[in-house]
Write a protein that binds this DNA or RNA. Sequence first.
DNA 1: TTGAAAGCGTTACCAT
DNA 2: ATGGTAACGCTTTCAA
Lengths: 361, 361
Amino acid sequence: MVVTMQDVARRAGVALSTVSAALTGTRPVSATTRARVEAAAAELGFRPNALARGLASRRSHVLALTHPVGAAGLSRTSAEFVLGAAGAAQERGYQLVLWPFAVEDADGLVGVARQGLADGVLVMEVHAADARVRALREAGVPVALIGRTDDPADAALPTVDIDFAATLTEAVAHLADLGHRRIAFVNHAAHRTAEGHGPTRRAAAAYDAAMAARGLTPVQVAAEESVVGGRAALAGLLDGDAPAPTAVITMNEDATFGVVAELAARRVTVPERMSVLAVVSSPAVAEQTVPPLTTLHAPGAQLGRAAVDALLALLLTGAALAPVLERCRLVDHGSTGPVPADAEPGAAEPAPVVPAAAGAP
Amino acid sequence: MVVTMQDVARRAGVALSTVSAALTGTRPVSATTRARVEAAAAELGFRPNALARGLASRRSHVLALTHPVGAAGLSRTSAEFVLGAAGAAQERGYQLVLWPFAVEDADGLVGVARQGLADGVLVMEVHAADARVRALREAGVPVALIGRTDDPADAALPTVDIDFAATLTEAVAHLADLGHRRIAFVNHAAHRTAEGHGPTRRAAAAYDAAMAARGLTPVQVAAEESVVGGRAALAGLLDGDAPAPTAVITMNEDATFGVVAELAARRVTVPERMSVLAVVSSPAVAEQTVPPLTTLHAPGAQLGRAAVDALLALLLTGAALAPVLERCRLVDHGSTGPVPADAEPGAAEPAPVVPAAAGAP
DNA sequence: TTGAAAGCGTTACCAT
DNA sequence: ATGGTAACGCTTTCAA
């Protein structure tokens, strides 16, 4: 039925252990026997059994990827991450299993992890206080994180993440260079910040810092993750007491569509009357709007590959690599432009420098 | 280091084989010993080793999901499918591994399949002539298909798919009930049909049949999978010699955005002057446009679950279930409306019935 | 350089 | 109902 190593050994006229050595190279084998073994293996169509190999060697060559499960589904960027990780694993001779678990279900996660199917775990969407990371670490399961926790005990774990500081700095710089001074930021929903959602918090701080560094006043609004949320957020910016912004940076992918819709409804033309810059977004999303949006594309696939490499490095060397930060790439689709000539000049006065965390109480 | 079944046996004062029996229920065990075993296992925090279990029982409790790899990435609907499958597998005590392979790389696929890590394979985006399916079948690997092939030899394999006939019939009915008679269909790119892409071909046939059944003339255009492709397709419909349609059904998710954009650019209001109905789409996509689109939502997650169940049924009973067809669900977001009163009356004449495949040469 | 044999941690069968 | 013991298909000593 199934061709085993023993079958190959018989065919090649050598011992089973010699076949193993010849095929894996774990010990020197003469060129002639190696050739005989390889020929026999090829003739029989031998494929080593992954389970047996894993059981004997104590490495399954399987990596797990756990991602929060919820109604939201997978964003395009997350999907790119998963595909990138699967591809990288494949190329390295590993397989990737999906472990959908709620962020709170650390027990369930450790439960499957301790079954020994996976050599290590990639944790997506890491939170500031993340029960999963703590539980895996305490269970001695090798992990690599996408994102960071606040726990110093997790600081030694390998990490990959989007470089939010560089991304938001570039976003603000791009708009400021066009003359904008009132640059608003539409972030994720407020409850995300409360939950310790890493990207939300790091982007908030990075935006505030980037604005402060230029003497600009940060104006940050939290938007529900929906078109309605985006419309409401933009309406709040335009109808508030403060002077309206001339440019908006959006990080909330779903709300971005709402922002564009609300601008269209109000006949505020993009980019003539309002510049829009979507950060940590994806090509597929940026091109879906009318007009298409200038974007700082999230490096989803690269992050997935980097995460796999970080985990494999830990597995093979026992030591964690230095944290990897991938920056977003600016792709100009024409939704940003010079500040309108009639923008209220008062806003050009340098605002007082505010602390970096001011926008995210 | 790792707690084994032998450890539990010692602790409970029984034989190893009794522990196995008590925990898996493969043979009768007295209530008292079962309790003792369970207590011992709980105290030691025993978790059976997945690799050893799989090797001994010859079932790994791992299912594989192979999906075409390419630049396109994962559509929202595909992502929902993957998540649905992963969730269903989880609930059934299985794990899901991702196998990214090109449709042409049947050898690579069979290669990993023969490593024995997975008990069976789910094949996504099945083509009419699909080398992967044929190769897996010939290798004796249990599979379940998402979609269908043209090969009669594959007819006995378990299958799940979108019910394109019901979906397009409902789409045409919905619009016809609103009084539309010139209903166009924007399908996927022409090369998809040539490649034997199942959804493209089945939807084409279903649309033609649904139109023919009502005595309407099918007008089908292939659009490149992009915003530009969608704009071009709509422009072709409006600028052609034939009378312009009063309603458009779109199945090409990327092109849909182009259709909407082109309508906006031409100041053709939706739904007053043109009804738009996106079929086999997703909630996330439908709400991203302005206005949001009335949609026949693709049952991604349900299909994923159904596919897992179909594969497990094959694995457990040895026989394939009957094909499962999941239909799309109409969600009215207001982008369809009554046919304009001034729509050219000549078009209301019943057109000659055309054969079902006429629109997809 | 090669062969023989002892695990790896389970399941499954055969006694008892 | 329970205990002992071969597999399962491979890696990894340890001898030769």
